[in-house]
């Protein structure tokens, strides 16, 4: 049995998870998302990456960005490395893709602010 703290929402439920045959038994979760999270932690732990990307704009040298969906936990630093290779020179909007299908993970790196369009 493993104990997992849910990070899905600020409630932070402490859950117990156990393998029962091919299925999982999760206790302590307050909602369905907790159960999904606990199972994912056991089988395929994933995290988001929120960071900034360098820009060529002097008054806004960093543009906030994130991955469009969670990525495998052990790929976080690799994705950071990819993002650090990029310099944004266009006035991207919120939601615009900065890196398409980063590292073939099936997710994009997207801008999370429209700050460059406001310059």
């Amino acid at each position: 049995m493993s104990t997992i703290v849910c990070i899905t929402c600020p409630r932070g439920c402490t859950m117990n998870i156990e393998k029962a045959g091919s299925d999982w038994t999760v206790t302590g979760n307050a909602c369905r998302r907790g159960r999904d999270f606990a199972i994912a932690e056991m089988t395929d732990p994933r995290r988001t990456v929120c960071t900034t990307v360098r820009t060529t704009f002097k008054s806004a040298p960093a543009l906030p960005c994130r991955v469009s969906a969670d990525i495998p936990k052990d790929k976080m630093f690799d994705v950071m490395k990819e993002i650090s290779k990029v310099t944004v020179s266009k006035q991207l909007n919120r939601g615009d893709v900065i890196i398409k299908d980063v590292l073939g993970l099936g997710v994009d790196v997207i801008a999370t602010s429209d700050l460059l369009t406001q310059l």
Binding site: T48, C50, T52, S113
Partner: peptide, 21 residues
Amino acid sequence: IHDGFGLVRYEEKLSGPEYVE
């Protein structure tokens, strides 16, 4: 720039800029 904003209001995990914008 981290996420976790707006879970109560939008049931979405938004970053700070996304939420406030």
